[in-house]
Design a binder for these strands. Structure first.
Lengths: 347, 347
DNA sequence: TATTAGCACTCTTTTTTTATGAGTGCTAAC
DNA sequence: GTTAGCACTCATAAAAAAAGAGTGCTAATA
């Protein structure tokens, strides 16, 4: 970073700051007047010319002011935000009502977050992979159906109806339940291997078929959960930012939010990436984002934990000129809240 | 309807037909050329003037062609569509994979429907109110938690964790389960009155508190389900219809779809209304719709049944000039499929 | 009496032209 | 190294002009 002397940094910061607020290309005269270094617009012009050559800012067209490039934003996020850190950021407390329903809670979180930031938001339900079986129970519902209830760590409960030819008597049912619980308790899905399966089947004797179905249900549950549930909110906030609001682009963007397929990819990608300064927060600026549809946006994400390695992801998507400071503060605050809340919840 | 002679009807039909296709105001010359009654544009003009006076068509501005008014559309839907009924409508079969997960199935349905019609679609999960308790089971998960599983008709399963101070022995657990099942089986939630509750508590003796919690859970479940789950798809299809595509309106529209609050109101409203010609399908044209946000749209809905009076609603929302025939055919087809599929599913 | 050709008029939409103004780059002076 | 000054560029806004679609009305026609 030796290429930028202090004055250039100040000017760059001023440009970005100004652009974040107005969304308009900023000219030399504006900087000359606003910033504390008393320089004429001509001088600023020279410096800006340099900054452009170095790739930190761009000119939308010949006779316009400058706007930050992706590289410029990146510099801002990496070096300039910290400087303002002493400012007390007054995040309204997120007011998450503690409801026992995870789903409801998550829906509420994205909504509040979208409202707070005025960007589009998403949150993924914690992935089930890696959670452990806590409890299994089969019960006879009627002549031909058995209900299997599986509870995983994190108190995630899954139900499945199993069809049977004839009812089990209660003694056998008890046996099966014992068998399932003793064998599966504490295991993650990947722990359930072929050896275990055949052992269990052997133990089950004539009820082998039922065991098979329960295990299959378990497997399906996981596969099911492979398309992790994702909750979104505020997709239409995009219309608030003219640079993203043209019909074509906005339509694609909102569709992506509706389909959620791409968001899923995004989340998958996140796990492989690094984070900003150990805050648990990641920032993707423009092209850095893995999602094609969001090349003109910035994406800020955080992961929250539900204990035992079960993770979910929160994301905020907005224009490149988003208020990074505010967004990052909001996220890390929320992350803390969630981590804590969920840790308490789990036993 | 004596006010319209045969020729006027033909002309009105031609105008609407043409407008449905093009979305442009249609002029006298177009009709003169396209329709089979050989009349000069001047004659058509006179007739159109009459039709306008009668309120079936409107002129967007002085020197433009005519477009159908709400009254015109209404006439079209009520009288003109039937005439084309002999046409074989080639609805692609909806290819709903039978999955045991209601949720997945519904998501798939709206998606396919949106794709088929190119309009915005929604479907509400069948409301739980009115369903009967089929099966209740409490199980000890660990020292301090009991899992209550309630299965309602339609195979809807609800789980809830109940905290207890100390574990129940298995004998007591068995008793409680018996108590719950014998008392609640086959009842709808509204059947569970105070008399029953106190009787059950009396029978439960020292475990009164647990009964209380189970019942409360049941009540909560219902209340929860009061904000019925609604799945949507294709909201961005709205951009395909220029008359709805302006940023401001589209944004509101899509927001309404995202929030789902208004859709919920819509569904609530539907139950009070009549339907078209005994098809189980309802059409709201423009102002007829109960939702403010959709004054410029038409809404076509159908209800499907899950047996035992449990109903859900499917809706298609598009421009007033939507292809009513196609939409209605699609809906009634889908309705049949769903009715059948779900009836099979439920015991 | 019902239909039609003809034409003036209206109003939107499109295209063209003409400002306006913000901002730059460069030169020459300080 | 900094700055005033000025010509030049380019997007945007405003105004003007042209084109077209469609109507309503009148007068002629079958």
């Amino acid at each position: 970073m030796e290429e930028l002397d202090e004055r250039k940094v100040k000017i760059l910061n001023a440009i970005i700051q100004n652009y974040l607020e107005t969304g308009e290309p900023v000219g030399s005269r504006t900087i000359s007047k606003s910033s504390d270094l008393n320089l004429s617009s001509a001088t600023i012009r020279n410096e800006m010319s340099d900054l452009e050559e170095l790739g930190y800012i761009v000119q939308p067209h010949t006779s316009a002011g400058r706007i930050p490039s992706d590289k410029g934003y990146r510099f801002y996020v990496d070096h300039l935000i910290a400087e303002k850190d002493e400012e007390i950021s007054d995040i309204k407390d997120l007011m998450i009502e503690k409801t026992e329903k995870m789903e409801k809670m998550l829906k509420q979180v994205v909504k509040v977050l979208a409202n707070n930031t005025q960007y589009a938001t998403m949150i993924s339900a914690p992935a089930i992979t890696g959670t452990k079986v806590k409890f299994v129970q089969l019960s006879q519902v009627n002549e031909h159906q058995i209900l299997s209830v599986v509870m995983m760590s994190g108190n995630i409960v899954k139900n499945k109806l199993i069809d049977v030819d004839e009812p089990l008597n209660s003694e056998n049912m008890l046996k099966l339940n014992m068998l399932l619980n003793t064998n599966l308790n504490g295991l993650t899905v990947s722990d359930i291997n072929l050896a275990l399966i055949s052992r269990m089947k052997a133990q089950a004797g004539e009820f082998e078929a039922i065991i098979e179905q329960v295990l299959q249900t378990l497997a399906e549950t996981i596969v099911d959960e492979d398309d992790t549930e994702i909750y979104t909110s505020g997709a239409t906030n995009i219309f608030k930012y003219p640079e993203l609001a043209d019909t074509q682009k906005a339509s694609e963007f909102i569709s992506a939010f509706e389909e959620k397929e791409e968001l899923r990819n995004l989340i998958a990608d996140i796990e492989t990436e690094g984070e900003e300064k150990g805050t648990g927060i990641q920032v993707y600026i423009g092209d850095e984002s893995p999602i094609q549809t969001m090349k003109d946006c910035s994406v800020v994400t955080a992961t929250y934990e539900l204990g035992e390695g079960v993770k979910g992801t929160i994301g905020i998507i907005g224009p490149k000129r988003m208020d990074y400071k505010n967004v990052m503060d909001n996220l890390s605050h929320l992350k803390k809240q969630l981590d804590q809340m969920l840790k308490n919840n789990d036993d």
